[in-house]
């Protein structure tokens, strides 16, 4: 019996060495382990005729051999498989130039990008973000901001009214007033939000637009702090190399007031069509808070000083991204939005 087993081992090793395909392997399996005529199967069936004393040892040898066949066959199968893959890939090369299966990316609206950038810059220098209603009273939108009853901005032609005393806010300044009523100085806030003006839509006007206004009130704030803050903000938003210019201007709720310009982002200040050859682009209006505004909210203007500023988000986006028409922001043409 053991001699037969030895012979079988030899012939199996030889047969296995010759197997080149999966099909040959399964034939080999049948030949040795097949249920009916497998050569090892037959040997195992003959175990009954082995003397009882030897049966245990012979049985163990047979089982060991069976296990060896299984392992060897598995190794051979893997070898043959990887070889066939190698051969196959040598024949058919993948066309890696075919486009991949792409997933569409969602795009953040450019005005949200700008608003977030502005919020982050001011957050980093201690400004909290304040919120307020878009439907406002005439008091918060006008009176409290030193805009008298007969001012043209209060006209039906410029402001949307919902009733005699309610309107759609024309700036986010009412949020500043509400904050100053609620909180005592020192304070630093910015108020981003949607505002409304009764302008007929064109390339630079929209009846609905977004603004960020800011306010700082403290005991020792001066015009130099105002300048420094605006310079820090504009350089952080546009670029470190941006030059900033301050010119006197006029607003009802600030004095001294300033119009703030930056060096033209299109020609770096050399002069081009966009900046009308001046090298400067007007970006925001600002100034020191008028004592009259402090009086309205009961803050002592002899003790406290402050500055305020207002930024048009659309204008910032137009300058930063080179958008030539404000209407693009609200048409939501995907070909436009996908660029951001």
């Amino acid at each position: 019996m053991l001699e037969k087993l030895a012979a079988l081992k030899q012939s199996f090793d030889a047969d296995l060495a010759e197997a080149r395909s999966g099909q040959q392997l399964s034939l080999l399996r049948d030949r040795y382990l097949g249920r009916k005529g497998g050569r090892l199967t037959l040997l195992m069936k003959g175990l009954k005729s082995v003397a009882v004393a030897d049966r245990k040892e012979v049985g163990r040898s047979l089982n060991q051999f069976k296990a060896r066949i299984e392992t060897a066959m598995e190794t051979a199968r893997q070898r043959i498989e990887s070889e066939s893959i190698r051969q196959e890939s040598a024949r058919v090369t993948l066309d890696l130039t075919l486009p991949g299966k792409r997933r569409a990316l969602g795009h953040l609206h450019p005005l949200t990008r700008v608003r977030r950038d502005i919020e982050e810059i001011f957050y980093s220098i201690g400004y909290s973000v304040a919120d307020g209603p878009e439907i406002e009273t005439t008091y918060y939108n006008f009176e409290a901001l030193n805009i008298p009853q007969d001012h043209p901005a209060r006209d039906q032609g410029d402001t949307f009214y919902l009733s005699e005393s309610l309107l759609l806010r024309t700036h986010t300044s009412p949020v500043q007033i509400r904050t100053m009523e609620r909180m005592r100085p020192p304070l630093r806030i910015i108020c981003p939000g949607t505002v409304y003006r009764r302008d007929t839509p064109d390339a630079t006007h929209s009846p609905v637009f977004q603004q960020v206004e800011g306010l700082a009130v403290d005991e020792h704030l001066t015009f130099r702090d105002f300048k420094g803050t605006m310079e820090y903000f504009l350089k952080a938003f546009y670029s470190e190399g941006t030059r900033v210019r301050f010119r006197p201007s006029y607003f009802g709720f600030t004095e001294p007031s300033a119009e703030v310009d930056i060096s033209c982002t299109f020609c770096s200040g050399d002069g081009c069509r966009v900046c009308k050859r001046t090298g400067w682009i007007e970006v925001l209006g600002a100034g020191m808070v008028d004592p009259e505004v402090f009086r309205h909210v009961g803050i002592d203007s002899e003790r406290y000083t402050g500055f305020a500023f207002g930024v048009g988000i659309e204008r910032f986006a137009m300058i930063k991204y080179g958008v030539d028409n404000i209407q693009h922001f609200y048409q939501n043409d995907l070909r436009f939005l996908r660029q951001f």
Binding site: G126, D131, P186, L221, D225, K227, G228, T229, R247
Partner: peptide, 20 residues
């Protein structure tokens, strides 16, 4: 001249809050 006035970034003791 606004341009002839100096500029500085003011110090701040308080913190800052995000919107709700």
């Amino acid at each position: 001249g606004y341009g002839n006035l100096p500029s500085t970034l003011p110090a701040w003791q308080g913190g800052a809050q995000r919107r709700q």
